[in-house]
Design a protein around this nucleic acid. Structure first.
Lengths: 141, 141
DNA sequence: ATACTTGCAAATCGTTTGCAATACC
DNA sequence: GGTATTGCAAACGATTTGCAAGTAT
């Protein structure tokens, strides 16, 4: 449970003006549970529920700002839906397709054996591994 | 260079009625270059250019049918844009973010070391590895 | 005081769908 | 002929943007 002042500090450190809305969202995202995978809709709903109404557009803008500032990480696993991960450390994901659920996998337990030669003039920014899971008993479609 | 009749056979084998449009798109996708990464827009534009006008909606529907039939594979790397890969073998990708370009990486040259325990009742459907690249000389944003 | 933020609604983008017209077997 | 497929436009869901009003420093 990180305290309120941490959210404030986090924003300051990221060079983001600590406005009412940003603080509210930062507290929602960074207090409590450690590794969360949320959509903008999720965060919007939570903010409403927490009695801190924030426009959906502002949620989108804020999540993008947090991402640019390195406080969040964007995950793309499904077409047409963006998830944000509060865990910004090096790690990977299980993705349960039937439930659209993401689960963190520590980087240590899933590493790449050997990297092929990169195209000229490029360097690695990140390696994303998504292990797509299905229910074992599911009827083959 | 696979011949025309191959496209026809491919559709038959997949249980898809070989209509004019599906044949046209199958030929575009499966003749010529081996491993292509295309968006629906790309395919639509190519069809126009090839003198085989097909409605964009039909392109979408057809690409989805091909994917369901196992002729194509869907790749999700960018929010809000779906790529289709004509290479359906086990493999992974480089993704050059500055150009939105995908490059195939053979499965052998990039394998996962050790798989953590899966959540209960699930099994692996696929492992997707995306190595995100940036230009080496690019100014840090 | 002034620049940065927010809210809201409208705009946009990629993709899907409904339905009448058309093509395949 | 009967069913699957197409085209088109309209519907859609997620995300972004423009601008007037509000707020942090």
């Amino acid at each position: 449970m990180r305290p309120y002042s941490d959210a404030l500090q986090r924003l300051r450190d990221a060079g983001l003006r600590p406005t009412r809305q940003r603080l509210a969202l930062a507290r929602l995202l960074f207090s409590g549970e450690e590794n969360r995978h949320v959509t903008a809709e999720d965060v919007h709903a939570e903010a409403q529920a927490a009695g801190t109404p924030v426009a959906l557009a502002t949620v989108y803008n804020t999540l993008n700002q947090f991402t640019d500032a390195g406080l969040l990480r964007e995950i793309v696993v499904e077409p047409g839906r963006t998830y944000f991960d509060t865990n910004i450390d090096d790690h990977h994901h299980f993705f349960i397709e039937s439930e659209s659920e993401l689960i963190d996998v520590p980087a240590e337990s899933l590493s790449v054996s050997e990297m092929p030669e990169l195209p000229d003039g490029t360097e690695i920014r990140r390696v994303d591994i998504v292990v797509r899971l299905k229910d074992r008993d599911a009827a083959a479609s």
